[in-house]
């Protein structure tokens, strides 16, 4: 009876551990900042990797990109870090999956490469008032017709004949 209870508890523990591990693993890799304009630099960190086990490898995948980045420094808060320069990156969201030097997975994180700066969405408008232009054109047309009538009236009869 005790054996079966112990087995049951162990199974429950393994099950819970299996359920909880992926969530815990997700927090083991971070990208800062999580959003960067294209050309910006992000810092990849595998917080649980032990520097003594060797370099961590960050696999970066996303729009038309699949590259490995090797860690270069020990992170201040623990783990290993690398800087990633996003010049030439296609805009979009990328996934970073880290593997520690001992081969263990250090989870994953995402970051987004965005357009640079603001949106150029205006031209200052046209320096013209189309209503006034239309009314002015109509009046000028009327004036031109009147001028033609006046001109014809004032021409000598012999010239008309």
């Amino acid at each position: 009876m005790k054996v079966s209870t112990a087995l049951c508890s162990a199974a429950l523990g393994v099950g819970l551990g299996t359920l909880l591990l992926p969530g815990a693993a997700l927090a083991d890799t971070t990208v800062s900042p999580a959003t960067t304009p294209v050309g910006g630099t992000v810092v990849l960190t595998a917080t649980t990797c032990n520097p003594k086990s060797g370099d961590a490898i960050f696999r970066v995948t996303g729009p038309n990109r699949d590259q490995n980045v090797r860690s270069t420094t020990a992170a201040a808060g623990g783990g290993l870090s690398a800087e990633l320069f996003t010049a030439g990156f296609t805009l979009g969201t990328y996934t970073v999956a880290a593997t520690c030097g001992d081969g263990s997975s250090a989870g994953s994180a995402t970051f987004t490469v965005t357009p640079i700066g603001a949106a150029p969405a205006g031209s200052g408008g046209g320096n013209r008032d189309n209503g006034a232009l239309a009314a002015g054109g109509t009046l000028l047309g009327g004036a031109a017709v009147g001028a033609v009538i006046l001109f014809r009236r004032r021409r000598p009869v012999s010239a008309v004949a």
Binding site: N127, A135, L139
Partner: peptide, 16 residues
Amino acid sequence: LGVTGLGLITVGLTAD
């Protein structure tokens, strides 16, 4: 008509 028309066109072309 001519003067007014010219005036309106000037306003139309230079309006803010």
